[in-house]
Simulated assay, not measured.
Amino acid sequence: MTRTAQGAAKAPRPPARERILSTATTLFSEYGIRGVGIDRIIAESGVAKATLYTHFKSKDALALAFLAGVDVAWREMLTDAAAAAGDDPADQLVGLFDAIDAASENGRFRGCPFLNTASESAPGSPAHRATVEHKRAVRAWTGGLAEAAGVREPALLARQLTVLLDGAMAAAALEPTDDVLPAVRQAARHLVEAARPSSASGD
């Protein structure tokens, strides 16, 4: 192989900020924010301490960047799972739970990163507020699907389904058995059907 070919075959190294955030995302997801020190992130991302603090002023700032990335990724998984269930919003309200399958494909699912982070954070702290904002956004999106499905109380159904979603993620992380998600989907279907007007259910 020529020197030119060798150079072409070697992928360029990602920018420092990207490496830091990617490393932090992997470690925070696996061990929690409190369980990972800045020195480990520096060592595994291959940057100098000054470089890390150039891009992230504190560990809290890095944690918020981690949560922002998780927010985008998780909401995309939810919308993709809902869309895959078909055009009926009622089916989409059940299908969104398949996002847990997508999140656990690598076999290392650790539950909801937002709830995990909130459990380590003081109420009112930036990380705790980010969790509340994320959960409200997911609930509002779910409420929109519920309205489109024509249920009687969309806000109530959205609250019920998102609480079920959080519980399902906890169960999938603690006891990743094959019967968790089918049971959750069945419960979601019952909630959706019960919330629909009597005429829609054939009564």
Rank of each mutant, 00 (worst) to 15 (best):
Q186W: 06
W74M: 14
S125K: 04
R17H: 13
R185M: 00
V132E: 03
V138N: 02
A65D: 10
D39C: 04
A168W: 03
S45A: 15
D203P: 11
T177M: 10
E105S: 15
R75I: 01
L191S: 03
R34K: 13
S45W: 05
G107R: 11
A140P: 00
D60M: 10
P15F: 15
T54A: 14
A65G: 11
T26D: 14
P182W: 03
A99S: 14
P89E: 02
V192P: 02
P113W: 05
I100N: 08
P15K: 15
L67C: 07
Q6F: 12
D178C: 04
L96M: 15
T51D: 11
E30G: 11
H55A: 08
M77V: 06
L161R: 05
K59V: 15
I33E: 09
I100W: 07
A68H: 11
G167Y: 02
H55M: 12
G144T: 03
A137P: 00
F66D: 09
K10E: 13
T79L: 03
L27W: 12
G143H: 00
A187V: 03
A103Q: 15
L145E: 00
S201W: 01
A99H: 08
D71K: 13
S201R: 08
G95F: 02
E133K: 12
R34N: 15
A200R: 01
P176L: 06
V138I: 07
I20T: 13
R34Q: 12
P197W: 03
K10A: 12
R139M: 12
F97Q: 04
A102N: 07
S22H: 08
A170C: 13
R13V: 15
D60C: 11
A140M: 02
E18W: 10
E76Y: 01
P12F: 02
F28A: 03
W74N: 13
L96C: 10
T142K: 00
S119W: 11
A158G: 12
C112V: 03
E193P: 06
E120W: 10
R189D: 06
A195P: 01
G202P: 04
L62F: 14
A130G: 01
A99F: 10
I33V: 15
A168G: 11
A11P: 06
L96Q: 14
Q160N: 12
A81N: 04
T25K: 05
H134K: 01
A173F: 07
F114N: 14
V163R: 06
R139S: 10
A195V: 01
E76W: 00
F56T: 09
T26L: 14
S121K: 08
A137C: 03
A122Q: 11
D87G: 01
A200P: 02
L93E: 04
A85C: 05
D91Q: 07
L156D: 12
N116D: 12
A200V: 05
V184R: 00
L62C: 15
T131I: 02
D178Y: 09
D179M: 10
L64Y: 04
A5M: 10
R34H: 15
G95P: 03
S125C: 05
S45T: 13
E133S: 06
G86M: 04
